[in-house]
């Protein structure tokens, strides 16, 4: 347990500097937008806080793996410890970011944002403000976790790849998802692409267009299960990682 605690402390320390810089920029942008709207007659609101946070946590996840893997192995920690401590660090970071984002959104009166009180909520629940705050926060937390774990997983598999497979995956996956699948759908009159979009929408953003899943509690439960499954996949992907020469 002590071994995991030290590794976790290191990861949180390592990520904290990046988080401080990130939130410094976000607060500065919000202050600037507030200042502009006060000085001009037009209303100017920055409403991209949690969308920016999603990008931040995704990149953090990718970077977190390769740097921490080498450092922890150097300091006598196993891959299991790396996986458990990086998932724990990500969970803590996601909780902190969910709360900070909510605070910033409330503080700067960002009426509409990406995850909370958003158009997506309208899609799921019919109108804004249907979800109570705890559930709203929980859904944001799940989204951050899922995006972060995706970053960790990509970091882990990218570390194992040589340059060519890296390029093939980086270019191939988007091309397959955004070009090949729609063409297949069009040619064969199927709905493969639409199904993929539905699953991704449900998993990552909590958007469900399936009538049976319009209950937000069921959606939250399904997304929690997806987070746990993704964490397991990431855990397994780290176990056979070798240190490159």
């Amino acid at each position: 347990m002590m071994k995991i605690k030290t590794a976790l402390r290191y990861m949180l320390h390592d990520s904290s500097r990046a988080m401080i810089i990130y939130y410094g920029v976000i607060v500065a942008i919000n202050l600037l937008s507030l200042l502009i709207s006060r000085l001009s007659s037009n209303s100017f609101i920055f409403s991209g806080t949690d969308f920016s946070s999603l990008i931040f946590i995704f990149v953090l996840g990718i970077v977190m793996f390769s740097q921490n893997f080498l450092f922890l192995i150097q300091n006598g920690r196993s891959r299991k410890t790396l996986a458990v401590s990086s998932l724990s660090a990500l969970a803590i970071i996601s909780i902190v970011m969910t709360l900070l984002d909510q605070l910033i959104i409330q503080l700067f009166d960002q009426g509409s944002s990406f995850l909370i009180d958003s158009d997506f909520e309208v899609m799921v629940y019919g109108s804004i403000g249907q979800m109570d705050l705890p559930l709203n926060l929980l859904n944001s937390l799940i989204t951050y976790l899922l995006i972060g774990i995706t970053g960790l997983f990509l970091g882990a598999i990218y570390y194992r790849m040589t340059i060519l497979p890296k390029i093939l995956v980086s270019a191939g996956v988007p091309v397959f998802l955004l070009v090949i699948l729609p063409i297949i759908d069009y040619r064969l009159s199927t709905e493969i692409f639409v199904s993929v979009l539905k699953i991704a929408g449900l998993a990552y953003l909590g958007i469900s267009t399936w009538p049976k899943l319009d209950n937000h509690l069921i959606i939250t439960l399904i997304r929690t299960a997806i987070v746990l499954f993704s964490a397991l996949i990431y855990y397994i992907s780290t176990l056979r990682t070798k240190v490159k020469a």
Binding site: K3, G76, S78, T81
Partner: peptide, 8 residues
Amino acid sequence: ENDRVQSH
């Protein structure tokens, strides 16, 4: 994959 002995 043994943290205990690797820390030795």
